[in-house]
Design a protein around this nucleic acid. Structure first.
Length: 265
DNA sequence: CTGTAGATC
DNA sequence: GATCTACAG
């Protein structure tokens, strides 16, 4: 009888250990195989002029408290991320990782400006968690309706098209934060006069980059009209965009304002 | 896709 | 304030 009890105990322990191992393996496995994880861009993060960086699960923010918004938002965009799920939009909430508090959504109410995503919700549709994470107020900037839903939306769609075509992109987006901008709300959220988006395709043999600088206004012009060099955006923002790149490659990519390698379809 | 506003509890 | 539905480019 004592033997039998011992064997039962042994079996129970074996199951418990087995489950423990299985559980941990399974947990590790989902985080590794789910391409949703760790897309906050560990490589190629720009420099931060503020030192206030929030690493979220699906994108990274450098926040500038003076302007009550991000100076940049960076993330990876892979072809596998592009999905057409129809998630319900959640409410915008403050970013818990910003100690100085990201701007409240109340600043935008009746301001005449939309809450424009920097990391678009449409780029994070591979999971509800990723989608919802784009609705943090640190990922938002004031944009007029005609810009956000117009040429800016066109640029975001083109970026998704390139992600599908070129497989994997590193994207950096922000408003140009400069003195004397108009502000909205009680917290004085600055309204940028220009927005930029920089895209890196770090894939041999043809590593390529493209940068856009757009005036904050309605436009029907072709997207390529807004292509500039990364150097130009660095001059305007004081941000070093790809410090992790090999210097000679960085120089070459950043001084170019050619879009020859990018298909505008 | 990108968004907002009004009604309701 | 949260939630639902309707609507606009």
């Amino acid at each position: 009888m004592r033997n039998r009890k011992f064997i039962y105990t042994l079996i129970s322990v074996a199951f418990a250990v087995g489950f423990y191992i299985y559980d941990n393996y399974y947990a590790a496995d989902t985080s590794n195989t789910n391409s949703a994880q760790n897309t906050s861009t560990s490589a190629f993060l720009p420099s931060s002029t503020t030192g206030v960086i929030a690493r979220h699960n699906f994108y990274t923010v450098s926040y500038n408290e003076n302007f009550e918004q991000a100076e940049w938002v960076a993330y990876e965009l892979e072809s596998s991320h592009i999905k057409s799920a129809n998630f319900k939009r959640p409410y915008f909430v403050e970013d818990p990782q910003i100690s100085t508090k990201s701007a409240s959504y109340r600043n935008y109410k009746n301001s005449g400006y939309n809450k424009g995503h920097l990391c678009p919700a449409g780029d994070r549709k591979f999971s509800k968690e990723a989608f919802d994470e784009t609705f943090l107020m640190s990922n938002v900037t004031p944009q007029i309706y005609e810009f956000n839903g117009g040429i800016w939306n066109r640029l975001e769609q083109k970026t998704r098209y390139w992600a599908k075509k070129y497989k994997k992109l590193y994207v950096v987006t922000g408003g140009v934060l400069e003195p004397n901008l108009k502000t909205i709300g009680s917290e004085n959220v600055a309204v940028p006069n220009y927005f930029y988006k920089i895209i890196l395709d770090y894939q041999e043999p043809e590593i390529k980059a493209i940068a856009f600088l757009m005036p904050h206004k309605k436009s029907e012009k072709a997207l390529y009209k807004y292509v500039v060099s990364i150097d130009e955006i660095e001059k305007l923002t004081g941000i070093d965009f790809f410090p992790e790149l090999d210097d000679s490659l960085e120089d070459k990519l950043e001084k170019s304002n050619s879009y020859a390698n990018w298909s505008f379809r």
